[in-house]
């Protein structure tokens, strides 16, 4: 019975904190995305030839995000019957958007006006300890296009 009580406490803690954190995170994501929309993130490999010569820089944003107790249990149950892992979906959505945001923030600090050739990578860092750690890393990287302050002399 005590196991059950501990379980319920962990569940409500996980749910409460997880839910609050998710709400706050989404709010912050939306605000920052709206602000950083002025730096478009483009998946094209190369900038168009019409673009004047610019400086370029590798920019990246990385996020490590962990699952809460509630989501873990919900996912465990879901894995019995199959279907959409909704509890993981929002988690990964947040991680991807946060990674792109961090990348853009880096680009912004460099004075870039767009980022080309965006790529994303996901790495699970729970290797071998499936039941202990439920964390995932999302890495977004791309080429920041930085306008040169002094126009390059045309030949």
């Amino acid at each position: 019975m005590y196991d059950l009580i501990i379980f319920l406490i962990l569940m409500s803690l996980g749910y409460g904190f997880g839910r609050v954190a998710e709400k706050r995170h989404y709010k912050s994501i939306l605000e920052r995305e709206t602000a950083l929309n002025r730096i478009p993130a483009i998946v094209l490999r190369l900038p168009p030839p019409s673009l004047k010569p610019q400086n370029t820089e590798l920019v990246m944003g990385s996020v490590v995000i962990s699952i809460d107790y509630f989501k873990r249990i919900a996912a465990g149950l879901r894995s019995l019957v199959g279907g959409r892992m909704m509890s993981y979906e929002s988690l990964l959505d947040r991680a991807r958007r946060e990674a792109v945001l961090r990348m853009k923030e880096q680009a912004d600090a460099l004075g870039a006006n767009m980022v080309f050739n965006i790529k994303m990578e996901t790495a699970s860092i729970s290797k071998g300890r499936k039941n202990k750690i439920g964390s995932v890393e999302v890495l977004a990287y791309g080429t920041a296009i930085i306008p040169v302050a002094v126009p390059i002399q045309q030949l």
């Binding site: 749910y15 993130a41 509630f70 979906e89 959505d93």
Partner: peptide
């Protein structure tokens, strides 16, 4: 870049309901 609409990659369903 324009802000994409929400709720495409995630579900709007309340997590407690699913659980």
């Amino acid at each position: 870049q324009i802000q994409p609409p929400e709720g495409i990659n995630t579900s709007k369903e309340h997590p407690l309901k699913e659980f």
